[in-house]
Design a protein around this nucleic acid. Structure first.
Lengths: 351, 351
DNA sequence: AATCAATAGTAAAACGATTTACGTTGATTG
DNA sequence: CAATCAACGTAAATCGTTTTACTATTGATT
């Protein structure tokens, strides 16, 4: 009959293990942490005791001494934003891989809440924090609270103030990729349905588009560009407007998948076939993009990868010295589906 | 010129405060925690010292002694699920209100990951945990690890094993509400586009529909019911099928907003007007529901409220004794928009 | 045989708060 | 006047680890 205590979950401490193994707590600590100079015999005895008692060290006590908690903070402006969860997943994933836990905080975009959350996290001695923006206001200033020398990484927003790495999508490159794909399909008049001017991405993507068509020897025509908001409801009028011109575009590059869905619907209503008569490319690679008819070719916002990178940068900053403060632009790859004319091979030029 | 130390964030301890105020650490602890028997004079002196030093107590040290961390765990099966973030927001919200932080963990539905996460959270001495399901497999068994007597709450899933409260939507009531609304609009042949049979919600909602129409004196007609999956792409064929019958339905109750979007699209293609010729009701109240043309009337899944309730139940269990183990079904209210014929007042019956 | 280095283990001091138990003091009371 | 009591403070123990001395034992080297 075992004499195991009923034990309310885990009263067992390192002392109990030491006692059972017939050694001192210090020795147990050594084997627990793989510190050398403990005989194989003792090592085995301690491990057996740990096993038998189902001992698990108390992280809190450990943290107190070590002043490292293996804990990250993740503060978001907009927990319910459409891009938020994928980035969160990336962050959580790398954190878990490296034995870190992450505190989730929602600031609702209010500096006062952000300050309060940061304060609590500081009190809880987290090792680092990611400040993540759910919406696309890219440039941001200092955090709402002085963080001393705690590592910080910005995600989906950037800063030019020094010492803080930022992770954002490569909007320019993404626009280039999308545009080039349409050129490769043989299109000469590529229409653009863009987002609102108060988003930096709007301008950057347009610049990417412009550079690409000009590099292909075409001239930039403002008549082919329309701008509204990111939502689907804005796409209908803009697309209709674009297609009603004397010389309508032969393809559409929509700067969000929502806009692309609206555009496709308008194109269909006008009796045109996608992609035979007109190609459509979206941006974001939202979940619904692949479920359209036809499935939407789109430029993917690398959200999970961005989350992972932000997490890696933060962990790296925690473990070593700070990485060079820098803006990391994660490439946006093309997800080729059926809303654009399929070419034999992406390499083959237009000729 | 101030002589404040450069200070690497927070080296200042309760001793420093005590020293500056000319009292003992114990006294400082008293005023910090509002414990009586400290003279107004001393109180003021201590507070001044706290202020001057910008002292903030170290949560880790506090937790070690008190064995309470003011920290919750939230483990989800599916961090990227469409319902997850709203529930998370609810949980985070109440937690923050009551001074708790929440650890976010993604188990990807793998028991092994869930076990690992739980283990880490236990080591970190969290005060309680919410096990949240991102998809609609409702019934679940015990957690993947024995949790001793740590409070647990299930969210978006339930259990009949004792001691654990569960928070789920009231699918039955929601189906009743949606059906009744269509009856109130004067419809007699209400078609149903349902989800897959391996979801319990599918059956419960159908039962709610059936009971409601039978209570109204109509007979349940299986020919009016179609089932597929929740995604939009399944809605087209089902709706077409339903509407091609000799006696087609005069209204549609779609058990997800995605299905409803597909249904509306099919209805339009057939040259019918919504809501004049046919009413459509959805389920979930996804973000896009309000952006349809016409905006979709739908039964709201009370995700944020469910998250809040789960958080409240957990905090309550932590602070007091466990609440009665029970299944909490949160009501699903009707969000009335323009895809159903508007009635003068919900109270006025059909007559 | 004496010295030294490497190995094995431990006692005790941290880490930074809370809490218990106790000591003053001054006022009130029988 | 002695005894009681309440108010105010503090020293020291405590929470469960890690880490820093420090001791003791070996085996190898001169």
């Amino acid at each position: 009959m075992s004499t195991k205590k009923p034990s309310s979950s885990s009263n067992i401490t390192i002392r109990d293990v030491a006692q059972l193994a017939g050694v001192s707590p210090a020795t147990v600590s050594k084997v627990l942490n793989g510190i050398p100079y403990v005989s194989p015999d003792t090592h085995a005895r301690v491990q057996a005791a740990v096993e038998q008692l189902q001992f698990r060290p108390n992280s809190i006590a450990r943290s107190l001494k070590m002043s490292r908690t293996s804990t990250l903070g993740l503060i978001t402006n907009d927990l319910e934003g459409v891009f938020t969860m994928s980035m969160m997943r990336g962050v959580e994933e790398v954190a878990a891989e490296q034995g870190f836990s992450v505190f989730l905080c929602n600031s609702y975009g209010e500096p006062e809440r952000e300050r309060a959350h940061l304060q609590v996290l500081l009190d809880k001695q987290i090792d680092g924090v990611i400040l993540m923006n759910g919406f696309r206001v890219h440039e941001r200033g200092a955090p709402a609270l002085s963080l001393g020398n705690m590592p910080v990484v910005y995600l989906f927003q950037y800063t030019r103030t020094s010492g803080i790495p930022s992770v954002i999508p490569d909007d320019f490159g993404g626009a280039v990729t999308g545009t080039q794909h349409l050129l490769d399909c043989g299109h000469q008049r590529i229409g653009v349905i863009n987002g609102p001017p108060n988003y930096e991405a709007t301008h950057i993507r347009l610049a990417g588009y412009r550079q690409t068509i000009e590099a292909a020897g075409l001239t930039f025509d403002p008549a082919l560009v329309r701008a509204g908001k990111w939502y689907e409801s804005f796409g209908y009028a803009l697309t209709n407007d674009l297609l009603s011109q004397a010389e309508p575009p032969d393809s559409l590059f929509c700067m969000s998948d929502s806009l692309a869905v609206a555009a496709m619907s308008v194109v269909r209503e006008r009796g045109l076939n996608i992609p035979r008569d007109i190609s459509v490319v979206g941006f974001d690679n939202r979940a619904f993009a692949g479920h359209q008819t036809p499935p939407l070719t789109t430029v993917k916002l690398p959200l999970v990868e961005m989350g992972r990178l932000a997490g890696e940068l933060l962990l790296q900053a925690i473990k070593a010295g700070k990485p060079a403060d820098e803006i990391y632009r994660v490439p946006c790859e093309l997800i080729q589906r059926a809303s654009t004319r399929l070419m034999a091979s992406p390499e083959s030029g237009v000729n």
